[in-house]
Design a protein around this nucleic acid. Structure first.
Lengths: 178, 178
DNA sequence: TAGTTTGTACAGTAAAAACTGTACAAACAA
DNA sequence: TTGTTTGTACAGTTTTTACTGTACAAACTA
């Protein structure tokens, strides 16, 4: 095995490892391979170059580079004289981790909080409604407690995402300087 | 709409919200619905009861309750006189959040760290190998720097999971007492 | 202006994942 | 022991997701 091949092998191992773990970001192995390829490529890449490198259709490259961009794992790059869109891997991975929570978790927390609060309001109305039987009211009281627990938990998650965004997390778990 | 129906509606809203957000845990909406159903059910449930409640096959209930158990979102329960397996939702959701990292993220971090370290070793060998061209060595040096960055990042993630497991995260983001 | 190039929408296809029903091993009952 | 009950492995099916190729709008070029 020559030097070039040995180098390539070390890259392939890491790229495949990224591909197999990127499901934590809700992305497919293909997107992971694309990300890994861009990571080791020392210049920004065009969609056509990705098509070439990965042997997949340009349409696929377009959709999955968008998925990577949405999570801010890759970003647009500019290079004078190049008309095609260029993409490169975001260089701050700690920030990318935080972005995952800012984008995906925050959205879920918000959606879920709304549902919980809406149901809580309806249950509070129900327990003071004179037309409702005691039996149902008792069940409603149990549900209210459960929903209050959920609401508090999601409020905690919200504060956790704040702590990530504000970089307070780095006080608790410091980044070691090289 | 009578009381029972109004109560049911508030539950359904929350269950559907769980179903739509549980992908963050790498689970399917069906598993989320199962989890939600168990959450509002005030007694532990058997597989047959879940089949009944959710209108799905017992096989599906078995596999998805296992997925929920693997992430410690549900746990076995015991009730004297009942021979069937009983399951209930884990009551500490903060701990469930931590378990997600202990189980899924820790595993990914380990796998990935191994791949990165292995490749780093091979690249270090490569750059001191006299039979390798200078051109390739230069590329190898660039890759070594990239892999060192990855290694440091994954080491940070590992410490982050530690901070979750040790509950240090609650110092940074406290749980508000009721 | 017309002629290219580039990225993506959309419809169709291929691949993967979720789900079902059968069949059976393990645990329990009599 | 034999007869039930219970959970799950496995094969087959359905549904969903990923991927491709075509077709076209927008942006650029001359």
């Amino acid at each position: 095995m020559n030097g070039k091949e040995r180098l390539e092998k070390t890259r392939e191992r890491v790229i495949e490892s990224i591909a197999q773990n990127i499901h934590l970001y809700g992305l497919t192995p293909s997107s992971g391979r694309q990300f890994g390829t861009m990571f080791f490529h020392n210049e920004p890449l065009t969609l056509d170059e990705m098509t070439e490198e990965l042997g997949m259709s340009k349409t696929s490259m377009s959709t999955s580079v968008r998925a990577l961009s949405d999570l801010k794992l890759v970003e647009r790059a500019w290079k004078r004289g190049v008309r095609k869109d260029l993409y490169q891997v975001t260089d701050d991975w700690y920030q990318s981790f935080i972005d995952l929570f800012s984008i995906k978790w925050r959205k879920s927390v918000n959606q879920h909080s709304i549902a919980v609060r809406r149901s809580l309001v309806e249950l509070e109305e129900l327990v003071v409604d004179p037309s409702i039987s005691e039996e149902v009211k008792e069940l409603a009281h149990i549900d209210i407690e459960k929903l209050q627990y959920m609401r508090d938990y999601y409020e905690w998650l919200d504060r956790l995402v704040d702590a990530f965004e504000d970089h307070d997390i780095f006080n608790l778990v410091p980044i070691k300087k090289p």
